[in-house]
Design a protein around this nucleic acid. Structure first.
Lengths: 109, 109
DNA sequence: TGCCTATTTGGCTATATTGCCAAACAGGCA
DNA sequence: TGCCTGTTTGGCAATATAGCCAAATAGGCA
């Protein structure tokens, strides 16, 4: 049962893992508005360039962004914009958590 | 820029991390059809019960599933079914990867 | 109470991820 | 060529994750 589904689920999990980091989510939000060079993203995020470069390579490996070298800069762009639709549902989860939290507080208080 | 968005992005990343494991994705697929006890899920997955229990607790912590004790069994159910809509887009990513891979092979061959 | 089943928790090891620094690499330009 | 800027890669330490076993906990029932 599980073994049969495992290859497909592994593939999905790999994509989700690539998404599951705040800096990488931020990169996606920025790229939604258009391509950016590594230097721009680095400045916006405020980590070391090498760190940002590694985050970008994770997203690229996962097939979520594509890179293009122009001059001595590398520009990244979203390959799969639908990724961002995703987050409607995630917000649902977060809101229901917030409700629960509020309920817990009022039950305790 | 990033610092301002960080709390929201952390929250999203937390949810995505909870999803990013093949056994946990499998659990969600099974629960889509209705609630299940830990013992059922354990048998389907084929790992140690303690491992499955820990996966369930990750999903519960993230607010994605809810548990309910009845007798000496614990039943888990999906709290946020929209999570599953998610995967349409992920499949898009995977398909575009498959296309790239095929293109690479034919370019090489 | 005592035993059985179902589940969770603690502890451990192996592995993966993150982020920094330093070094390597690549393109542009004098 | 030599230098500067932008980017990636290697290496390391800190932290997190995964999975197993063993032990603790909880409910049902004799």
């Amino acid at each position: 049962m599980y073994q049969q589904r495992k290859p497909a689920l592994d593939a999905r999990a790999r994509i989700l893992k690539a998404l599951a980091h705040p800096s990488r989510l931020f990169i996606l939000e920025v790229l939604e508005a258009g391509e950016r060079c590594v230097c721009d993203l680095t400045e916006m995020i405020g980590s070391d360039v090498s760190t940002v470069s590694k985050h970008l390579s994770v997203l690229k490996q996962a097939g979520i962004v594509a890179d293009q070298k122009r001059g001595n800069q590398v520009f990244y762009q979203l390959r799969v914009p639908c990724i961002l639709n995703f987050f409607g549902c995630i917000e649902t989860v977060l809101q229901s958590q917030a409700r629960d939290h509020a309920a817990t507080l009022s039950a305790v208080g």
